[in-house]
């Protein structure tokens, strides 16, 4: 293991961070969504696919897979935000009508976690994942 890690560059660790954040946000989303009418299989599928791709990247470096992972996480994050427009409208107007304004905090925190995955993946894309010997 030590030998393997010795070969890894900074980019690899950003991929790992992206995976950890994505898995954590996936867990949070799957716990939160069914109780607040927020379930969306596209979001789950996108994050799961992003994680799978990132796990693949941890084994083998591939630029296209990295970009695809960014796309997957981006879909997850933006879809969650656009699905929740009603809650944001309620929260801004201080009413309870279109969504659930009390969930704005949860929606934002989950979205931010996924967006951090996006960010980590983008940073990883600019960096080497394997040290050049």
């Amino acid at each position: 293991m030590k030998t393997i890690l010795e070969k890894k560059a900074v980019g690899f660790y950003f991929v790992v961070i992206a995976v950890i954040l994505a898995v954590a946000s996936l867990i949070r989303f799957t716990i939160w969504a069914p109780n607040h009418h927020g379930m969306d299989v596209i979001i789950i599928a996108a994050i799961v696919l992003g994680v799978v791709l990132d796990v693949f990247l941890m084994i083998k470096e591939n630029e296209y897979i990295l970009i695809l992972a960014v796309v997957c996480y981006s879909i997850g994050a933006v879809k969650l935000l656009t699905n929740s427009v009603g809650s944001f409208v309620d929260a801004i107007q201080g009413i309870n009508m279109f969504g659930d304004s009390s969930q704005v905090g949860n929606i934002l925190s989950i979205s931010i976690m996924i967006l951090l995955s996006v960010l980590a993946s983008i940073i990883a894309a600019f960096l080497k994942q394997i040290k050049e010997l």
Partner: peptide, 20 residues
């Protein structure tokens, strides 16, 4: 890496603009 990074950024922006 530069092209990979920039493509990643535009991927995010593309998803954001399409879904937005």
């Amino acid at each position: 890496r530069l092209w990979t990074g920039l493509a990643s950024v535009t991927s995010f922006m593309l998803v954001l603009s399409i879904l937005g």
